[in-house]
Computed example of a mutant assay.
Amino acid sequence: MKLDFSTQSPDNSDIIKRCHGGTQMSQITLRQIPENVDALIRQLSKEQKQSINKTIIELLEKALGVSQDSNKKRNLSQLAGTWSDRESEEFKKNTAQFDKIDWEIWENENLH
C-alpha cells in the first residue's frame, strides 16, 4: 500500500484511517487491573496464541454482544475443557457410584 503524504492532516488521522480500512482505531489505557484478571487474560492470550491486545478486544466484543461470533450457543461447548485435572478427577471420584448397578433393586423391579 502506497500512502500519499502530500495532503495529510496535521494529526495524521487520514493516514491512520487509510491504514485501518477507513476507520480510525481508538486507544484505551486501563489502570489498576486486578491481579487475577490480569493473570486470566494472559493465560487466555497464551492459550489462543494471540496478543494480549487482541484477547482483550475479543473479550470486550463478546461482553458487549458485538463480536463477529456473537451467536449465542445453546449448549455447554464454552465450558468444555475448563476443568483442571484435579477437578476432573474429583468429579470422576464423586460420580463413580453411578456406574455401579444394584442388581438386587434391578431384579426386584423386573419382577413387578
Score class of each variant (00 low, 15 high):
111 L>H: 06
4 D>E: 10
4 D>L: 07
108 N>L: 14
83 W>S: 13
8 Q>S: 05
105 I>F: 13
76 L>R: 13
74 R>W: 14
4 D>R: 07
88 S>W: 04
13 S>M: 07
35 E>W: 00
57 I>H: 01
26 S>A: 14
33 I>P: 01
1 M>D: 14
112 H>A: 08
61 E>G: 05
93 K>Y: 00
18 R>F: 02
110 N>S: 09
42 R>E: 09
85 D>M: 09
55 T>G: 04
15 I>T: 09
60 L>T: 12
87 E>G: 09
52 I>G: 05
28 I>Y: 03
17 K>A: 15
61 E>Q: 13
75 N>V: 10
96 A>H: 03
5 F>V: 00
84 S>C: 11
16 I>F: 12
95 T>H: 06
10 P>I: 02
101 I>Y: 01
103 W>Y: 09
43 Q>D: 09
56 I>R: 02
92 K>L: 06
27 Q>G: 14
93 K>T: 03
46 K>G: 06
7 T>E: 09
4 D>A: 08
73 K>N: 11
88 S>H: 06
95 T>V: 04
108 N>E: 15
8 Q>N: 02
19 C>N: 14
79 L>I: 03
72 K>Q: 14
43 Q>M: 12
11 D>H: 05
109 E>Q: 12
40 L>M: 12
71 N>K: 12
108 N>H: 11
63 A>N: 07
82 T>W: 01
85 D>T: 05
67 S>H: 10
91 F>I: 05
57 I>C: 05
64 L>A: 11
46 K>S: 10
86 R>D: 10
22 G>S: 15
102 D>M: 07
17 K>Q: 13
56 I>N: 02
78 Q>K: 10
21 G>W: 05
86 R>S: 08
63 A>I: 03
99 D>A: 07
14 D>Y: 04
93 K>E: 00
50 Q>E: 06
78 Q>W: 06
7 T>I: 02
3 L>K: 08
68 Q>F: 04
15 I>G: 08
91 F>A: 07
26 S>I: 08
15 I>H: 07
18 R>T: 12
103 W>C: 06
68 Q>T: 13
1 M>K: 15
20 H>S: 15
92 K>D: 00
49 K>D: 07
109 E>R: 15
80 A>W: 01
63 A>M: 09
104 E>L: 11
2 K>S: 13
103 W>M: 09
106 W>R: 13
40 L>P: 02
48 Q>K: 15
39 A>P: 02
106 W>G: 03
1 M>P: 14
2 K>N: 14
90 E>N: 09
61 E>C: 09
12 N>V: 02
83 W>V: 02
91 F>M: 07
19 C>E: 15
45 S>E: 07
38 D>W: 03
80 A>C: 10
16 I>D: 11
107 E>M: 08
111 L>F: 00
21 G>T: 01
108 N>R: 15
95 T>E: 02
75 N>C: 11
19 C>W: 08
103 W>R: 07
61 E>Y: 00
33 I>A: 03
34 P>C: 03
91 F>H: 05
26 S>P: 13
11 D>A: 03
18 R>H: 11
96 A>Y: 01
70 S>F: 08
10 P>A: 06
82 T>D: 04
